[in-house]
Amino acid sequence: MSVLIIIPARYASTRYPAKPLAELRGATGEARSLIQRSWEAACAVEGVDRVVVATDDDRIKDAAEAFGAEVVMTSEDCANGTERCAEAFDALGGGYDIVVNLQGDAPLTPAWFVEDLVQGLRDDSMAEVATPVLRCDGRALNGFLEDRRAGRVGGTTAVFTTDRHALYFSKEVVPFTSETYADEDATPVFHHVGVYAYRPSALGAYPRWSAGPLEQLEGLEQLRFMEHGRQVLCVEVEARGRQFWELNNPEDVPRIEAMMAEMGVA
């Protein structure tokens, strides 16, 4: 099955304008933009036929082409990354069996997250969309709770059935737990990793559906699939000693840079 990775990137982020061009310094001190680091993460995934950046902004286009990325221009009307991926896929003429949305704010996404995600969609014929989830250790959970106490939107959490079909995603920490966990403890909370794999039929239908109340309240694009009765598969992935965090706010830059330094990511 052929696989296309699309990296949607927009300049006018409400929480962090110009976020794709924000620079991150790795363990060597070299600064590279968020969009370049996300593209490098996509290129490291095995079994992928093509990687493209989808944007509506010439500044991102110019920056991406300068480091060698293929770019597809999309309209300014896309409400989220999934709509941008759908438009880019259509502009490319389709022709792929699985489309991966590797959002441009997750430069620490390990290649095996995406590889496991694609395999999960291949293995579950009922699922039309798949997305990774990572069990939080105490350190990650405490980071989520700290963000909420400070009024920041941090990571997204997921709850799902015993066969891994999603029940809900939230920017709140769900399920509720009153326990205190040490940094290395496993917790009952799963961090939703902002990567998606779609079957083309589901991706093509998505822009035609209206955003429902849950999507609007949470600001989470994947809830549109669920509100329209589509199965979203949660694929549990293993950290293998890697830390993972998405860049949602300017305050996340030093946090991610510290993780990169600790892991030796250049």
Rank of each mutant, 00 (worst) to 15 (best):
D124F: 00
A127E: 01
E128L: 08
A130L: 05
T131W: 08
V133C: 09
R135Q: 15
D137I: 12
G138T: 03
G138D: 04
G138W: 04
R139H: 12
R139S: 11
F144H: 14
R148Y: 12
A150D: 10
G151I: 08
G155P: 01
F160R: 02
F160S: 02
T162H: 13
D163S: 10
D163C: 07
H165Q: 09
A166G: 00
Y168I: 08
S170K: 02
V173L: 01
V174M: 10
F176M: 07
T177Q: 03
Y181I: 12
A182F: 10
A182I: 06
D183N: 13
D183G: 06
T187H: 04
T187E: 02
T187D: 03
T187N: 04
V189M: 13
F190G: 05
F190V: 07
H191N: 15
H192E: 14
G194H: 13
Y196K: 08
R199M: 00
P200C: 05
S201I: 09
A202S: 13
L203D: 03
G204W: 00
G204R: 11
R208A: 12
W209R: 05
G212A: 03
L214T: 06
E215K: 14
Q216W: 03
L220I: 15
Q222D: 13
M226D: 09
M226Q: 12
E227N: 04
V232Q: 05
C234Y: 11
V235E: 00
V235C: 00
A239H: 09
R240A: 15
R242G: 06
Q243R: 13
Q243S: 12
Q243N: 09
L247D: 01
L247G: 01
N248R: 05
N248L: 04
